[in-house]
Write a protein that binds this DNA or RNA. Structure first.
Lengths: 328, 328
DNA sequence: TTGTAAGCGTTATCAT
DNA sequence: ATGATAACGCTTACAA
């Protein structure tokens, strides 16, 4: 592998001149430039990205960490980040955090150790103080969930408002006993959506009944159990608000087998083609990723600039059939 | 940011000793080790990954390039590669190639330039001679599709056999006029599946009718058009074999609206919950990714070793409802 | 067991 | 316009 020295020797110039040619420094005579370029071609010279990176102390790579890349919501975020990064000649280092909060810290620390140009993270924990030291050195943008104990850019969706709207929509269809389906309230997004659900009930003058909150629905068996629990006749539940696309997808077999009025937070592929098709509050994961990546680039370019740290994207109710199932 | 020198100074030893402690070199007295470790902690020392990487000339990163990370099939591959890489302390650099073959070469070259430890690629083109120079330096493993014009490890599925089986299954249900739904035959996987489809017809003594091959079905409108074309009464088509999960998903609205007997290559989320549920030939993308990543590691460890270059994984027919729709 | 010196390939600084 | 030199942080070879 030819190095800059080899090229310099071949062209009869100093390495620095080769470097200048490489970096389009105007202070090179056309003749010299020509000669150097010829040597580069002759020797099949490719600059060693490591050396450059090493010298500059930062690699042209943005990290993106999400709980689960197979989840279409997070895949869309990753995809958007990658596309945006590409436009700035940055590669994308992807890390799956898994759904176990304990894995987040080691995973992120090992990523951030690579001194990348920035990091987009959809976190699984609520405490990010351990990132403070890193956040001082590289831009970190949170998506989907806000950082905990750390001031950083965050791009979120209107969890509470969306949940309120989805729940109110069911109330508008005449339901008064509405179940809440979710995974775990430890996730701030889910907690916020529970608040929105309660908001809608309160606005309609309906009582909040903790017995109607069914959790652990992130897997098919879990969702089936949770739904079965909500269907207990003595609860009188006639409709369900699913707080999370992962839970909704897990609940699909149970829903299609025994339909019940449903609205759900988060759209997902084929939600419109199920029987019944699922009414959802649609988020925009691509926008989340795009904005976060753009912010990293902006922070890198203008370190001092003051920018609104938190951006909340609106969500949109997409009305399909599942909300129209009449109270039994 | 503290460097090795700082730690050395603080501990009153030479940088080399710090290096030894870091690398678990046994030739360090416990007392010295102890002192160095204390200094490392005190100074919050984190080794500079660049310097290490630079010195060793290879970064602990595997690249993985797929057409589209939002496609659950490729997401599963990426996920499997990442998991396998993690086990070997490797990070994962993800690149989406897009479905435009022209983008493959520049995208892969820019990835491979980063001198990573290996590359897993699900290619979009059929000619990979441009990778020959790189393949000589780092292990490259192809998944889903074989390399063209290049000898490299490949992990594939039984496209032809799977398509044969899916088509034969429809024939077994009494269909004799079976449409072939696909995107483009330029993809070797799809071409192989067309062969399998023809194999099944031939085995059953049925003629192959090119009019029953409907392409361009990778998008919803495209799939709807292709299906409409196949439904033309004069063709007498009573069943369809969809050659690709992306096309099948795109065709879902048209299928659920007007059911027709169907088997499809490639499982996808919720295929079992649609009405009708879709009978598929299931691939194992996670196995593809896992095997490919393992192969990279193995190649790195044993450069000379002779290994079977091509591995073809079996596929499995998952019988659901869509194949049972009777000929009209 | 520990240290010294040199160098990985590039670029910044300061000369010329 | 071009070059000499040093430096980035670490590791390898060789000493001590």
């Amino acid at each position: 592998m030819a190095t800059m020295r080899d090229v310099a020797a071949d062209a009869g110039v100093s390495p620095k001149t080769v470097s200048r040619v490489l970096n389009d420094d105007p202070h090179v005579s056309p003749a010299t430039r020509e000669r150097v370029e010829r040597s580069m071609r002759a020797l099949d010279y490719v600059p060693n990205a490591f050396a450059t990176t090493f010298r500059s102390g930062r690699s042209p790579v943005v990290g993106v960490a999400v709980p689960d890349i197979v989840d279409p919501f997070f895949a869309a975020i990753v995809n958007a980040v990658e596309e945006a990064a590409l436009a700035d000649d940055l590669s994308t280092l992807v890390t799956s955090l898994g759904h176990d909060p304990a894995r987040e810290r080691p995973a992120l620390e090992s990523v951030v150790r690579r001194q990348l140009s920035g990091l987009v993270v959809a976190p699984t924990t609520n405490d990010h103080r351990y990132l403070a030291a890193w956040a001082a050195r590289i831009p970190i943008a949170f998506v989907d969930r806000a950082p905990g104990g750390l001031v950083a850019d965050a791009f979120l969706q209107d969890d509470r408002g969306g949940a309120r709207e989805a729940t109110a929509h069911l109330i508008g269809h005449g339901h008064t006993r509405i179940g809440f389906l979710g995974d775990a309230l430890s996730a701030p997004t889910i907690a916020a959506r529970l608040e929105g659900y309660r908001d809608a009930l309160a606005e309609a003058g309906l009582p909040f009944d903790p017995a109607l909150v069914a959790l652990g629905a992130a897997t098919r068996p879990g969702a089936a159990d949770a739904l079965a629990q909500l269907r207990a006749p003595e609860l009188g539940v006639t409709a369900v608000f699913s707080s999370d696309a992962r839970c909704t997808m897990a609940a699909v077999p149970a829903i299609t087998a025994h339909p019940i009025a449903l609205t759900a937070f988060g759209d997902f592929p084929l939600a419109d083609s199920l029987t019944p098709s699922i009414t959802v509050v649609a988020q925009d994961p691509a926008a989340l990723g795009r904005l976060a990546a753009a912010r990293l680039v902006e922070r890198a370019a203008h370190p001092g600039r003051r920018l609104r740290r938190t951006t909340v994207l609106p969500v949109a109710l997409v009305e399909r059939d599942s909300c129209r199932i009449a109270p039994a």
